[in-house]
Design a protein around this nucleic acid. Structure first.
Length: 155
DNA sequence: GCCAACGTTGGC
DNA sequence: GCCAACGTTGGC
């Protein structure tokens, strides 16, 4: 099993939205490297759902892959912001996976992740990293789970 | 195949 | 809103 980190802008789609829907396609990925990562995902792989372009950014929860990569319908839809005129039904360029929520974490702010020496090598923390789908090492994933489990002492 | 120009991402 | 970093585009 592999682990991943998926970025999303919570104003567009948040971890809470995934919980509310019970399951959702992860669509709209329009970067080749990110798409290749989507293609590698297997059933049951676990994903950190990361909220970007928000204050503060951070990891909100865990989701699992319940359907592997298949063509993303939004690429064929002229009315979709994700429409790709160069994509054809015969040769689709972009894929999506389907996710289900596993559990929410105590929201782990980016600044907290940066402060963790054990997470220093994580891709998401690297300067200039813009990839929306990245693999996560098992040890990093587990460390984040631990951090996200910790309850605050006062309300 | 190079690379300048442009668009996008995303933290701050 | 700024701007650094990165990806994509397109002329040559």
């Amino acid at each position: 099993m592999q682990h991943w980190l998926l970025k999303t802008e919570p104003d567009v789609f948040s971890y809470a939205d995934l919980v509310r829907l019970g399951s959702s396609a992860w669509d709209g990925v329009r970067n080749y490297q990110a798409r290749n990562h989507l293609r590698q995902m297997q059933l049951g792989d676990l994903c950190l759902i990361y909220h970007s372009s928000t204050n503060p950014p951070g990891v909100a929860g865990i989701a699992k892959v319940v359907e592997t990569a298949h063509p993303d319908p939004s690429q064929f839809d002229p009315d979709s912001p994700y429409h790709d005129p160069k994509s054809t039904l015969e040769q689709p360029r972009w894929v999506q996976v389907r996710l289900e929520p596993v559990r929410a974490l105590v929201f782990l702010e980016l600044s907290v992740l940066r402060a963790e020496p054990e997470l220093e090598a994580m891709l998401i923390l690297r300067k200039g990293n813009r990839l929306s789908v990245t693999p996560v090492e098992k040890k990093h994933f587990e460390r984040i789970l631990e951090l996200g489990k910790e309850q605050k002492l006062s309300a």
